[in-house]
Computed example of a mutant assay.
Amino acid sequence: MVAKAPASSLARSARPSFLGLIQGELIKLSRQWLTWFMVLCLVAGTILLHFIIASNNSTHTNIANSSPQFFYSEMNMTLFVLRVFGGIFLMILTGLMIGMEYQNGTIRIILARGVGRVQLLLAKLTAMLVVGIELFVAGVLFNALLALVTLYSQGGSISIIDKMPAEVWNNIGIYLYTVAISFAVTILMTATVSVLGRSLAFGMSVALAWFAVDNIGSLFLYLAHGFTKQQFFLDVTAYLLGPILNVMPKALLPKSLDITVTFSPFVKVDGPHTLWVALAYGVAFLAISIGVIWKRDVHE
């Protein structure tokens, strides 16, 4: 006679594993038409940007002179676009991944199968981290490929790469580092507002509006300083997430480089300050999202 396994052990074995949850989230994202539509928009926009760069007269001059400025211009424009539009891409996917569970009521089904609330959130965050890494690596490689195409189309050769000092590649690496930080904080921010709102519409709208409010809000703080002459209003802009992420590349890279910055703080900030502020926001977002989903039951 074959002994039957206890019902409790069968229930435990039927629970999805953490890796299984991550895989399931990635599969769900890959089957969303919106995911591939946004990928197509990113690809098309990147190609258009490189076409504009190649059409610029200064690009041909920099290549002819084997100037590092060619690579710095590529870095400044392409990585800025990758950070901004890649961040929007990650915001939409994160909001979709979490908000749809509440909107469709599927979160109750998942939790009924024995998945913990915190476990589910961490699986979703890990899945988005995987997506963020894929986007980062694919974006960097695609931009590098198009930069080589631009190089050859303007009469250059690969030998220009060997002529560049190590400082050039080190500076590009620092800028890439800031893009990765921006991606990570963006995912955590969107997850937090989605968990707080328990709604696809709320999470998506607040996440997409966050940086706009931050950046435009800094202008109102500047106006408040103009009316009141209080330094406090300018000091606050050094702690707004949007302006801090905007100015981070410029704060970390040498001052001799002309780095594009939009809506920066209205006080001077250095590189370590931007890193600490971004870290504080990231830790706060993670703690809030875990605390809320852990303490608050799902009834809807």
Rank of each mutant, 00 (worst) to 15 (best):
A3D: 13
A3V: 11
A3G: 10
A3Q: 14
P6S: 13
A7V: 14
S13G: 01
A14T: 04
A14L: 09
R15Q: 13
P16K: 06
S30I: 07
R31T: 14
W33A: 14
W33R: 15
L34S: 14
V43R: 06
L48D: 07
I53S: 05
A54T: 13
T59E: 06
H60F: 01
N62R: 09
A64P: 07
A64T: 14
P68G: 04
P68K: 06
Q69F: 00
M75T: 07
M77L: 11
T78L: 00
L79K: 01
F80R: 09
F80P: 01
G86E: 04
G87S: 14
G87Y: 02
G95C: 06
M100L: 11
N104T: 15
I107C: 01
I107P: 03
R108H: 08
L111K: 06
L111F: 03
A112I: 08
G116S: 09
R117N: 08
V118Y: 01
V118F: 00
L121W: 02
L122V: 12
L125S: 09
T126E: 00
E134T: 15
N143L: 03
T150H: 03
S153N: 14
Q154Y: 00
G155F: 00
G156M: 04
G156R: 06
I158E: 09
I160L: 08
D162W: 06
D162C: 00
A166W: 10
N171M: 09
I172K: 01
G173D: 10
I174K: 07
I174G: 02
Y175Q: 13
Y177L: 14
A180K: 03
A180C: 05
I181N: 05
F183V: 03
A191K: 04
R198K: 15
F202A: 12
S205K: 02
V206A: 10
A207S: 15
A207Y: 05
A207G: 10
F211S: 09
D214N: 15
N215I: 08
F220I: 11
L221I: 10
F227P: 04
Q230L: 13
Q231R: 13
F232P: 08
F233V: 12
F233Q: 06
T237Y: 04
A238Y: 02
L240P: 07
L241P: 06
G242M: 08
L253I: 03
V269Q: 02
V269I: 05
G271W: 06
L275N: 08
V277T: 07
Y281W: 04
A284N: 08
I288A: 12
I290P: 08
I290C: 10
G291S: 13
V292P: 04
W294I: 02
R296L: 02
V298P: 10
